[in-house]
Each structure stands twice: as structure tokens, then as C-alpha cells.
Amino acid sequence: VTLFVASYDYEARTEDDLSFHKGEKFQILNSSEGDWWEARSLTTGETGYIPSNYVAPV
């Protein structure tokens, strides 16, 4: 399981994006799509795309 933590807050801009807060942890589901990764929030359980430059490895 690949875990990352949010370095910043992010507000979703499309329905496919995932909003999150600094400190929130994610399981990365797919990182092969470039700068936007499909992730599941371990806080909310929601799945969506997050900007990879807003998160760091745990």
C-alpha cells in the first residue's frame, strides 16, 4: 500500500477531483496518469484525482 500525506489544502475544481485538507492521508490507487493521481482518502473514504505536487510520501 502506497501512502501519501497532504502538504496543503486543495479544493476540487471538477467532479473527478478530490478536495482535501493538509495532513489528510491517502492510498494511491493509480499514479500512471502524470501529475494527477487517483487516490482514496483514508479520512473520508472518498476516491478521486489529486494533484501529485500537493502530497508527500508518509
Rank of each mutant, 00 (worst) to 15 (best):
R40S: 05
L3D: 07
S31W: 13
Y8L: 11
G34V: 11
R13A: 11
T14A: 11
A39N: 00
D35H: 10
V1W: 11
F26Q: 01
A6Y: 01
P51C: 11
S32N: 11
G45E: 04
G34M: 10
G45H: 06
D35M: 11
S52W: 07
A6R: 00
R13L: 11
D9N: 07
F26T: 01
A56G: 08
E24V: 04
Y8W: 11
R40C: 08
G23A: 02
F26I: 05
I50R: 00
D9I: 02
T47Q: 09
K22R: 10
D16Q: 14
A6M: 00
E15T: 12
L18A: 00
T43H: 10
P57D: 05
W36T: 06
W37V: 05
F20E: 00
P51I: 03
G45R: 03
S19G: 07
V58A: 09
S32V: 10
T47I: 14
W37A: 02
G23L: 02
G23D: 05
K25V: 15
G45F: 07
T2Y: 11
T44V: 01
R13C: 15
Y54W: 07
Y54Q: 06
S19V: 02
Q27Y: 13
E15C: 14
E11Y: 09
Y54A: 14
Y10T: 01
L29E: 04
D17V: 14
R13P: 07
Y10N: 03
S52D: 03
E15K: 13
W37P: 00
D17E: 15
V58E: 10
F20Q: 00
V58K: 04
D16M: 14
V5W: 06
L42N: 03
A12F: 03
D17N: 11
P51L: 07
R13Y: 08
P51Y: 07
R40F: 08
S31Q: 13
V1P: 12
S32P: 10
P57R: 07
D35E: 12
G45T: 03
N30Y: 06
G23R: 00
F26W: 02
E11W: 08
T2R: 12
E24H: 06
T47M: 08
D35K: 08
P57G: 05
L42R: 03
D17G: 15
F4S: 04
V1M: 13
P51A: 03
N30D: 12
T14L: 09
E46Y: 09
T43V: 10
F26M: 06
K22P: 03
